[in-house]
Amino acid sequence: MTDYGHALTFGLSLDPEADRLDETRRLAKAADEKGLDYLAVQDHAYQPGHLDTWTLITHMATRTKRISFLTDVADLQLRPPAMLAKAAASLAVLAGGRTILGVGGGAFADAIAGMGGRRRAGGEMVAYTEESLHVMRAALGGGGVRLLSDQHAIEGYEAGPVPTLPIPLWLGSQGPKMLGVTGRAGDGWISPLNIYVTPAQVPAKQKIVDEAALIAGRDPADIRRIYNVIGTIGGLRSGPGLVGDVRLWTDTLTEWAVELGFDTFIFWPVAETRAQLDVFAAEVVPAVRKGVDQIRGQR
Rank of each mutant, 00 (worst) to 15 (best):
G104P: 03
G104V: 07
G106S: 11
G106F: 11
A107W: 15
A109H: 14
A109Y: 07
D110Y: 09
A111L: 10
A111V: 01
A113C: 04
G114I: 06
R118M: 14
R118L: 15
R118I: 15
R119D: 10
R119L: 12
G122K: 05
G122Y: 05
G123Q: 09
M125D: 08
M125Q: 15
M125Y: 00
V126D: 05
A127G: 14
A127S: 14
A127W: 00
Y128C: 02
T129P: 00
E131H: 02
S132V: 12
L133R: 05
V135I: 15
V135D: 04
V135R: 00
M136Y: 03
M136D: 03
M136P: 00
R137D: 00
R137K: 12
R137S: 03
R137C: 04
L140W: 08
G141F: 12
G141Y: 10
G143A: 11
G143F: 12
V145S: 01
V145E: 02
V145N: 01
R146T: 09
R146S: 10
R146E: 14
R146A: 10
L147M: 15
L147V: 15
L148G: 03
L148A: 13
L148Q: 08
L148V: 15
L148R: 11
D150F: 02
A153V: 14
A153G: 03
A153F: 12
I154C: 06
E155K: 13
E155V: 15
E155A: 13
E155W: 09
G156F: 14
G156C: 13
Y157A: 04
Y157Q: 01
E158L: 14
E158K: 01
E158M: 11
A159N: 06
G160L: 10
G160W: 09
G160K: 07
T164N: 01
T164Y: 01
T164S: 11
I167M: 06
W170A: 03
L171P: 00
L171Y: 01
G172S: 04
G172M: 03
S173K: 05
Q174V: 08
G175Y: 04
P176A: 13
K177F: 05
K177E: 12
M178C: 04
M178E: 04
G180Y: 09
G180T: 11
G180I: 11
V181K: 01
V181G: 00
T182A: 09
T182H: 05
G183E: 06
R184E: 05
R184H: 02
D187G: 11
D187V: 05
D187L: 07
G188K: 02
W189V: 06
I190M: 13
I190Y: 04
S191V: 04
P192S: 11
Y196S: 12
Y196M: 13
V197N: 11
P199M: 08
P199N: 12
Q201R: 13
Q201I: 01
V202K: 07
V202M: 10
V202W: 10
P203F: 10
P203N: 07
A204P: 00
A204R: 07
K205M: 15
K205I: 05
Q206G: 07
Q206Y: 03
Q206K: 01
K207D: 15
V209M: 11
V209E: 12
